[in-house]
Design a protein around this nucleic acid. Structure first.
Lengths: 125, 125
DNA sequence: CAGCATCCGCAGCGATACTG
DNA sequence: CAGTATCGCTGCGGATGCTG
């Protein structure tokens, strides 16, 4: 049965049109590390570089740097560098980032709650 | 300011632990094409292979096949093949897939609504 | 401590051709 | 129509070494 879908307002006959700006944003936000960084900062607490590396377990320096640069450019994250030695840099979410994180959170909770069942099915097939 | 975060129930000091089953599910669900397929089917309407290729604009045959196999194995999608010539195959969401799509939708609406502003910021930097 | 620059391997992806 | 099979490449991402 069909369900009314607000996305159809934007995309009547496709999902996300190719070349559409939202595809780019989607790639940034839903990327493996982009997602984890947004979630790590999702509490609203600022985090330091080293702390982010710990929380997004498995991320390399290169990927963290690249991811952060993208998120900062997109206006999801602010970088606050204090001119001290040794350097002290904090990252936190902008209001826009907080909006996004708020939408991400219920989804992530659903995923962790259902992941075991899902992979059980996948293994059985 | 700190916000109470239900994800912390599962991951007190990290985001998604490396090697955690939910990371795998996340990779399937948030992948470029996985996402688009889930959204395309999000209305609840079954779609045929050729229709899916049209809606997820830009997807190659190979990637569509691979994506669908994963989503079927994970129990998000059902494949209904009718033994006729020419072949007629329909894909639709399972109840689990519908749950997921329901959580995905508000997020996607937010993304399309904010994408122009976001990329404007990105271009300015 | 918080990065940037560079090299490089390989898996992921696209393109093409073929089939039930 | 709805896929599978194969090949070739490229660009993502890891590893390493260096700097303010």
């Amino acid at each position: 049965m069909a369900v009314s879908n607000p996305l159809r307002t934007f995309f009547p006959d496709r999902v996300f049109a190719a070349g559409c700006p939202s595809r780019t944003v989607l790639d940034h936000v839903m990327s493996k590390w982009g997602l984890l960084v947004l979630l790590a900062l999702g509490d609203g607490e600022p985090l330091r570089w080293s702390e982010l590396r710990r929380r997004a377990e498995g991320v390399s320096e290169k990927m963290l740097a690249q991811t952060l640069r993208t998120l900062v450019a997109d206006g999801f994250v602010v970088r606050d560098a204090r001119p001290v030695v040794p350097p002290h840099v904090e990252y936190s979410l902008t209001p826009r980032g907080l909006e996004l994180a708020a939408l991400l959170n219920p989804l992530m909770v659903w995923v962790v709650e259902n992941a075991p069942d899902i992979l059980e099915d996948a293994a059985a097939s």
